[in-house]
Nucleic acid binder design. Structure first.
Lengths: 343, 343
DNA sequence: CCCCGGCTTGGGAGCGCTCCCAATACACTG
DNA sequence: CAGTGTATTGGGAGCGCTCCCAAGCCGGGG
């Protein structure tokens, strides 16, 4: 007797479990999938057999027969280093992982870099390789969300792309975070509050700017466009914007930067210009990253609940997969102002 | 005619591709899997059909029939926040992703947190859900590597657990990184060089300490155990160790900390003790993290090629999956000393 | 002209599971 | 006591693919 090629890693199959429990394959399947239409005695017999044999369902067979995969993909646009930068990525992953921990769902990580990979990606998702997709850091002009929409693939994105986001999305309250930061500056007596914005095509950056304006308006301070300098979320961009601001409004006494990294660039310029922080100029960032804590002086910053965002994204996706309800909620999570030495 | 339930998301199957190309299913399969035993004409016909139909193989069916999954798992011990801290996690993921980009391999992310999840994990891997496993930040007493070994599951770990690591592993040169850092301090005239170590059960931390000792010995400086303070890779631990060192050897003129985070803790204590950096005490960290760049003064640090480590890990794993050669290489990648203001 | 071997090819068998229909068993109802 | 309904069960029919055996084809040698 030649040893048969061992398939499935020598693992027991459902058939064997059924045989051991003295029931049919269908019944064993019902027990394992928690169907209520099984008698108590039968259920126990099958569960005993499962335990004795150490049975674990074969995922591939399940996927093939059941036309689902029990897996979701987290799609990360790789060149987007901003996203990969701490702490966003790991925090999101953690949150997603936490939400999935009690599930059979697996998490597939997909780095969609260049166009070629992006095409492959579309194919993957198209080929029903996953039950749903989490998209993070999508650009407004990314065709992927629409593609997924057409294919009826459940999908949740982080950060609405514009005011009427058709997809389910989870976002932090960019508007209120910025508003609170600027309000804090005004409360502390600052009167000439500038802002360094992110790329305004990014809806979140726009919202932060809106929040800045709202805070000024609420305090009765006149709007001054020359106190607004656009940048691009980079340290260099932040430095450049700060130089512009100093040139245009030498007597500004506070700066709200739409990211910690841009605040770091601004701080560098302020130091070179011999402006003391916070004595001469107060500085606030956004993200509450490691950079903020270790900056000198420590940077006041708006904290986003990133891990919680990941968790909510996963939850929304699971619901959409389960129910396919028509509704696509937009969840907005509150931010928190972490006051440190720079303001 | 009732519309049949659409399976497989309405995607074309291999059978349809074969029909369209006017060949048999087997032949179509051969073309798609790159078998050489197909005539040129046939190959082209099948490829044309694939293109026209937009055929993408069904992964589940493949896995079921072929007894493989085309997926590997990256197992992350979740409570290990040190690993999750920037920049390790995202850099590893990036490297792994890069290595997998040209492959059909999928990356499964598995956060193994508490014991319950760890059991589930063992089951997963046991049930042949993946073709191989990447283990990062494994503790010396983690049973998982041995378990995988027994099951014949290809596996690569980051960071050898001890000198004779039986598994394939990828590591940075902890010894030489530390040696170079301390050598640098000595070259700059420091004579009383202390070190703050990581948890010495961690092999890498031990190697850094070995490197420190080797550099002192090479320079002919006498070993002084009271210049060595153990810590645990945390900021608080670093601070505590620094206090001890200052108490024991008030006149030390340099500190090599086995991580940037511990260096940050040490800096805090040095500042409180009115020691100027680098004038009174030079400080060097390890990891070259964001913290290092934004510390004040900017921290000299040993950079590990983390992304490259991820890439090599994935490569090793792919080789092991493909070949199952008996050899289990230990790859050690060079580090680089990044000199900044603190030394 | 037949046979043999190499190159291609078609398609059966089967991977382990879910879905679903039909069968069985039993409890009531009228 | 037949008739009807309900709870439970078994197992056939696939899911889409890979593996592999056998068949078809061709050219060259005997």
């Amino acid at each position: 007797m030649a040893a048969a090629r061992v398939r499935n890693g020598g693992r027991p199959t459902l058939e064997e479990v059924a045989a051991r429990a003295g029931v049919g394959r269908g019944t064993a399947s019902r027990v394992i999938n928690g169907s209520p239409r099984v008698s108590e005695a039968t259920r126990e017999a099958v569960q005993a057999a499962v335990a004795e044999l150490g049975y674990v369902p074969n995922r591939a067979a399940r996927a093939l027969a059941g036309n689902r995969t029990d897996a979701i993909a987290l799609v990360v646009p790789e060149p987007e280093t901003r996203f990969f930068a701490e702490p966003y990525f790991s925090a999101i992953v953690r949150g997603v992982g936490a939400a999935l921990a009690d599930t059979e769902m697996q998490l597939l990580l997909t780095l969609a870099g260049n166009d070629r990979e992006r095409r492959r990606l579309a194919q993957y998702l198209t080929a029903h390789r996953v039950d749903g997709v989490l998209l993070v850091a999508v650009h407004a002009d990314d065709p992927l969300p629409e593609l997924l929409e057409q294919l009826g693939m459940p999908c949740v994105i982080s950060g609405a792309r514009h005011a009427n986001e058709p997809l389910a999305s989870v976002d932090s309250d960019n508007f209120d975070g910025a508003r609170a930061a600027v309000e804090h500056l005004i409360t502390r007596g600052r009167r000439s509050v500038a802002t360094i914005t992110g790329r305004l095509e990014v809806y979140g950056a726009q919202r932060r700017l809106d929040g800045y304006r709202a805070a000024l308006a609420a305090a009765g301070l006149p709007p001054d466009e020359r106190l607004i300098a656009p940048a691009d979320f980079t340290e260099e961009g932040g430095a450049r914007a700060m130089r512009e601001l100093l040139a245009r409004r030498p007597h500004l006494d506070a700066v709200f930067a739409a990211s910690d990294v841009m605040a770091a660039g601004a701080r560098q310029v302020l130091r070179e210009a011999d402006r003391r922080i916070p004595d001469d100029v107060a500085l606030i960032g956004f993200d509450d990253s490691v950079v903020a804590r270790h900056m000198h002086p420590a940077l006041t910053s708006v904290r986003q609940p990133i891990e919680e965002m990941g968790r909510r994204m996963a939850q929304l996706l699971l619901e959409e997969i389960a129910g396919r309800t028509g509704e696509r909620p937009t969840v907005v999570l509150p931010t928190e102002l972490v006051v440190r030495d720079s303001s």
